[in-house]
Amino acid sequence: MKGKLFYVGLILAFVLSAVAHYTHLNATLQFVISAIAVIFVAGFLGKATESVAHYAGERMGGFLNATFGNAAELIIAIFLVKDGMFEVVKASLTGSIIGNLLLVLGLSIFAGGLKFKEQSFNVKLASHNSSLMILGVIALFIPAIFAGGLTTKETSSMSLIVAILLIAAYLLWLLFSMVTHKDVLSDAAVEHGEALWSKSTSILFLVLATVMVAFSSEWMVGTLEEVTHKFGLSELFVGAFLIAIIGNAAEHSAAVMMAMKNKMGAAVEIAIGSSLQIALFVAPVLVIASFFMGGTPMNIVFTTYELAAIGVAVFITKSITQDGSTNWYEGLLLLVVYIILGVVFFLV
């Protein structure tokens, strides 16, 4: 009965959110209805991810969740790049990276830690994740430092080369972690219990849930400009925090659910894996795509504020996850750093 009520609520909330959006109801009302829909859809996505993980393993389940979630973000970002809104795109990418590392992972570790005294995942995977996060920071810092002494054309060429190298590094990481060293980086077997659905149904529902998240999040984001204007919030804060919280918290809420079931391997893959995918794949793809759209291409040079936020997020995340074990206090530390950055971005 409880399960049936959830699905009734899911369908009802999603339909009402669509109606509110397409009939152009009051922005504040749209925002509230969309927020309720996002909560229901996030729960559906969590169930789908857990069911897929039952068949494919925690890492693959987490990877699919991160990939489907970022796919929707990539599509939206491509349209923004086409319109030349490069700064908005970079702010949202920054928000996604720090949101996943600090908010999603922080909540996962904190929630899981309240239920289990200590949780662990593959320590070798933790080490490789740390190295990849540092690579992402280096790849963003170096162009920003040297861009001042380069011409626009040279900056574009540098951005294109760095983007190609990052994509190659990410694809080879997938080959390394999912194929050649799959056994070394896998977690110890965890009791999954019964799957909610069959394998094919689980994958279908994961795709469906991701599409629903993309729509409901986009409808909610569409009301933000008018709603936040009433409170005098800056574009940087809205782009890097509010939009990121809505998009990432909805897409990757499954990480929290996984952590609370002592499946920290999947939670880490969703949170850190998604951030790595944004930094090493999504951002470079947007840079390369901009070269085929005509006009001035997007470079990979981020602002000092954005670089500082990403660098701090990577530093604290590496420090906490490098030993392959977590507790609730470490999750709290990540959340504190996220709040500090939020306060600063709010006041800038």
Rank of each mutant, 00 (worst) to 15 (best):
H128Q: 10
L29W: 13
L204T: 14
K82D: 09
I246G: 01
P143M: 12
L64A: 10
L196D: 07
I310K: 09
I97Q: 05
V81D: 01
S157Y: 06
I33P: 05
L347W: 11
A20N: 05
L140V: 11
I300Y: 14
A250C: 14
V190A: 13
T321R: 00
T67R: 01
F176I: 02
I33A: 08
N100V: 07
F346P: 01
T326Q: 09
Y338S: 00
S156F: 08
L165V: 15
V38P: 00
V268A: 04
S17I: 08
L80C: 02
W197T: 01
A139T: 14
S96N: 06
G232R: 10
L347T: 15
A35R: 02
I33Y: 07
L25P: 01
L114S: 06
L333Y: 01
K230M: 14
G222S: 14
S156Q: 15
L165A: 15
N327S: 05
I134T: 13
L5S: 12
P284A: 10
H192R: 11
N70F: 00
Y22P: 04
A188Q: 13
V287C: 06
G99H: 00
S325Q: 13
V337W: 00
F40D: 00
I246T: 00
G232E: 11
F231W: 14
V337P: 00
V123T: 12
E269R: 07
V337F: 08
V343K: 05
G294P: 03
I245W: 03
L171S: 02
E194Y: 03
S157G: 06
V207F: 14
F292W: 10
A214Q: 08
A209L: 07
Q119K: 10
K230P: 05
A250F: 01
F6G: 07
G112S: 06
N299P: 01
T152F: 12
I245F: 08
T303R: 04
P297Y: 03
A169G: 03
T223M: 12
Q119H: 09
Q30G: 15
V8T: 13
G331I: 00
V238K: 08
A13Q: 10
L174H: 02
I33F: 07
S130E: 04
A42Y: 00
A289V: 15
W328P: 02
F110W: 14
F79V: 11
L335D: 02
N248Y: 02
L10W: 09
G9L: 13
L12Y: 09
G112H: 04
L174G: 11
G265K: 04
L102H: 03
M264P: 02
I310E: 07
H252D: 14
E194N: 08
A20Q: 08
A271Q: 03
G84H: 00
H252P: 06
